[in-house]
């Protein structure tokens, strides 16, 4: 009898029972999802990014389908940190998997205040800094300028004990440089990648489709770009990478693992098939069995091995 392979991985010292988690903002834990699968089966859980204060989000239309992908300009609506801590965080905590709390700040002070606030709850295992949402009107390039990235990551890291994940934007000259900068500033892990900035135009109205004019492109359309981003960062940094960008099942997830991701996140495909993450976990297990590996950790970064 063959032993079921070990799917557990470690991100910044936090054990994940398996390497599959949702991407922030693409999966809610609530009763609507009760009939699909239990989020307790996931490698980790994560919230839709919160800010310190409530935000309404962007005017509609907020999403637009594109070939093999979608543009979104949601604008991170949220009820603010207090509501999150009281209403949502306890529900994530009680599920079982590690809790990643995704946060963003509009100012340096907000990044610090929110990080400290989340740490003080004792309900988070990791802190993900969403430095890379392309849809915020203030347009602060938290992760597109090395100096700004360095400043915000090091400021947060110096104030909290929680391991910090830097979620990076791919809209840069060389994402490996940004990965190295985040690592140098003290990030314990990287989430790669956020969406690519893009737009669509309504040829009848002769105007941009999205209410926000531009949006972030996600879905299988960006997967090769994301795999490359992870691959190139893996050659540069030692901290673990959570890979994402168009993952629609186990094959795509395994590509990211081989490129160097220690875990993967599913975003848009949760909308298309709410069982995608469960199927991805099962498919990775099957792949490891078929390929004769006893642990998923054996294949992380394997694509870099030169023959």
């Amino acid at each position: 009898m063959r032993v079921s392979p070990d799917l557990s991985v470690e991100i910044a010292g936090v054990p994940f029972p398996n390497p599959v988690m949702p991407a922030s903002g693409a999966y809610e834990v609530d009763e609507i999802h009760d009939n699909f699968f239990s989020p307790s089966e996931l490698g980790a859980v994560i919230n839709k990014t919160i800010f310190l204060h409530p935000r309404p989000g962007n005017p509609p239309p907020r999403i637009w389908e594109t070939p093999c992908g979608m543009l979104n300009a949601i604008g991170i609506p949220c009820d603010g940190a207090e509501a999150f801590i009281w209403d949502k965080l306890p529900n994530l905590r009680k599920l079982g998997p590690p809790v990643v709390v995704s946060i963003a700040g509009e100012t340096m002070e907000e990044w610090i205040e929110l990080s400290e606030l989340i740490e003080s709850t004792g309900m988070a295992d990791l802190l993900e800094l969403n430095l890379s949402c392309p849809n915020l009107s203030d347009g602060i390039p938290w992760s597109t300028e090395e100096k700004t990235l360095e400043r915000v990551v090091s400021a947060v890291v110096s104030r909290v004990k929680l391991p910090v994940i830097a979620k990076l934007s791919p809209v840069v000259t060389d994402i490996a440089d940004m990965a190295r900068t985040a690592e140098g500033a003290g990030a314990s892990a990287l989430s790669m990648i956020n969406t690519y900035k893009g737009m669509a135009i309504d040829i009848k109205r002769k105007r941009p489709v999205l209410g926000n004019v531009t949006g972030g492109l996600s879905g299988p359309a960006i997967r090769p770009l994301a795999v490359w981003a992870v691959y190139s960062a893996y050659e540069t940094v030692k901290i673990p990478i959570i890979g994402m960008g168009g993952i629609d099942g186990p094959t795509a997830a395994i590509e990211f693992l081989l490129a160097g991701a220690s875990a993967v996140a599913v975003g848009m495909y949760n909308f298309i098939d709410p069982f995608t993450m469960k199927k991805t976990i099962e498919g990775i297990r099957t792949y490891l069995l078929e390929e004769g590996y006893s642990s998923v950790r054996e294949i992380i970064g394997m694509a870099h091995t030169r023959a």
């Binding site: 809610e28 999802h33 949760n270």
Partner: peptide, 9 residues
């Protein structure tokens, strides 16, 4: 089902 937050009014 409330995941994407696209259909705002």
């Amino acid at each position: 089902m409330g995941d994407c937050h696209g259909c705002a009014v």
